[in-house]
Simulated assay, not measured.
Amino acid sequence: MKLIFSALIVLGLSFATGNAIAADSRNVSVVNETGYAIKFLGFNGPDDGLDEWDNELEKTLNNQDTAYVEFDEDDEGCVWNVKVDWANYNESVLWKNVNLCKFNVLRLRYDSSTKTTSFLAE
């Protein structure tokens, strides 16, 4: 019985380790802390140009909501451009050369006194 129990523990640990290894280090949770709704969230590589974007959102990302972005094996590199379009405004925010391999959470923020949008990486 101890042998079966030990085997189950080892099997469980191998599955847990396999899933942790399989997670892409660029996958990121994006938290909207701007006070405004976001209708578009895009990532592209620095060599892709600034005209090629795919929206990672299935629906509007409201204030205090989180979107989880997963990258594919075909995506290369840690450094990406990040673009946000507001739901009720005809403006975009662009951050260039963000190293997604250095954090798991990207908190988007807006400072109304300076009218600047920033992010905090965790």
Score class of each variant (00 low, 15 high):
3 L>N: 11
4 I>Y: 12
4 I>H: 07
4 I>P: 00
4 I>E: 10
5 F>M: 12
5 F>H: 10
5 F>I: 15
7 A>W: 07
7 A>T: 14
7 A>M: 15
9 I>Q: 06
9 I>N: 06
9 I>E: 07
9 I>R: 09
10 V>T: 15
11 L>Q: 04
11 L>S: 14
11 L>C: 15
11 L>N: 05
12 G>N: 15
13 L>T: 14
13 L>C: 15
14 S>A: 15
15 F>E: 11
16 A>C: 13
16 A>I: 14
17 T>Q: 04
17 T>N: 07
18 G>R: 04
18 G>K: 07
20 A>M: 08
21 I>W: 10
22 A>K: 12
22 A>L: 10
22 A>E: 04
23 A>F: 00
23 A>D: 09
24 D>T: 05
24 D>N: 14
27 N>I: 02
27 N>Q: 07
27 N>G: 06
29 S>Y: 07
29 S>W: 02
29 S>E: 05
30 V>Y: 03
31 V>I: 12
32 N>F: 08
34 T>Q: 02
34 T>L: 09
35 G>T: 08
35 G>C: 06
35 G>P: 06
35 G>M: 01
35 G>I: 07
36 Y>V: 08
38 I>M: 06
38 I>E: 02
38 I>G: 03
40 F>L: 13
41 L>V: 05
42 G>W: 04
43 F>C: 04
44 N>V: 10
45 G>C: 03
46 P>Y: 08
47 D>M: 00
47 D>W: 11
47 D>H: 08
48 D>L: 11
48 D>K: 14
49 G>Q: 04
50 L>F: 11
50 L>H: 03
50 L>D: 15
51 D>A: 11
51 D>Y: 07
52 E>L: 11
52 E>D: 14
53 W>Q: 10
53 W>V: 01
54 D>T: 14
54 D>S: 12
55 N>D: 13
56 E>R: 14
56 E>N: 12
56 E>K: 14
57 L>R: 05
59 K>D: 13
59 K>F: 02
59 K>T: 12
60 T>Y: 00
61 L>S: 04
62 N>G: 11
64 Q>L: 10
65 D>T: 04
65 D>V: 05
66 T>G: 01
68 Y>K: 08
68 Y>N: 08
69 V>C: 04
69 V>Q: 01
70 E>S: 12
70 E>I: 01
73 E>S: 12
73 E>I: 10
74 D>A: 13
74 D>K: 12
75 D>A: 11
75 D>F: 03
75 D>R: 06
76 E>N: 09
77 G>F: 02
77 G>I: 09
78 C>K: 08
78 C>E: 13
79 V>N: 07
80 W>H: 12
80 W>C: 04
80 W>L: 09
80 W>D: 02
80 W>E: 05
80 W>T: 00
81 N>C: 06
81 N>Q: 11
82 V>H: 00
82 V>Y: 00
